[in-house]
Amino acid sequence: MSILIDADTTFIVQGITGREAVNLTRECLDYGAGARIVGGVTPGRLGRDVHGVPVFDTVAQAVDHHGGPIDGSVVTVPPAFCKDAVLEALENGIGLVVVVTERIPRRDVAEMVEVAEQRGARIIGPNCLGIIVPDVIKMGGIGGPARDAAKAYRPGPVGVISRSGGMTTEMSSTLSAAGLGQSTAVSIGGDAIIGSTYAELMPLFEADPETRAIVIYTEPGGRMEAQLAAWVAENHSRLPIVAFMAGRFMDEMPGMSFGHAGTIVEGREDTAAEKIARLTAAGIQVAERIEDIPTLIQERL
């Protein structure tokens, strides 16, 4: 099993004729059993195709052409149009929206996350690389070209959640090299407001019998780790969690933001030191180095 997606998941790519989306589409089609990308959407491009995937002007046209509900969408449109694209997907019954686009205005992100919640849908991202179930399917650019993704990701018992797209692959690759595969890896996005946090994904992993441990990649900034610590304490999770905290040096540089927009640290609660203390108090093991993660997981399986 897996979480969020499986071999039967159908999805579309919104903004499919853009350069990144064309590459992403190829990568998803080539990976595993081949993603079931049932359409792409770019207004004004009806009738074209991208690697054999038919292009439509609207999501409604894609749904009509498919002849039934579509499970997901990968949104790759420019920031100014992203909210409209996500709302269009939600209005057409799509339940899982992976938003790759970064630099979306914060009010737009807050609005689309709230609308998704109201409709019982889920957003992954924005500013993320998507989801991968090793050897089965990937939804988004996660892992890069199929050949590279196949090297980095292997099937196994570890669920991976990461604020960094690149580090999702780095940590999974480290696990794979040590013989520890992944059940599902999710790049949740590096922005300050995102659709799905660690704590919101944990119940899904908890319900997945194939997942036996969790690895998370965290950074200073934001309150997601505090939410995770609270979730673990309240829910007595069966899953051991190992975390890696990047950017510990940022504690010496208050007010600075590095890399992801969500890493800005101002308050005391979101420093690396405070987060490590909270995670540790909740029973989550914090790895000193990425290469320590496989051993820490093996000790807990």
């Binding site: 914060r106 009010r107 407001i193 308050g267």
Partner: peptide, 8 residues
Amino acid sequence: DECVLCQL
């Protein structure tokens, strides 16, 4: 506009 709705 930098608010993250953390409600702290």
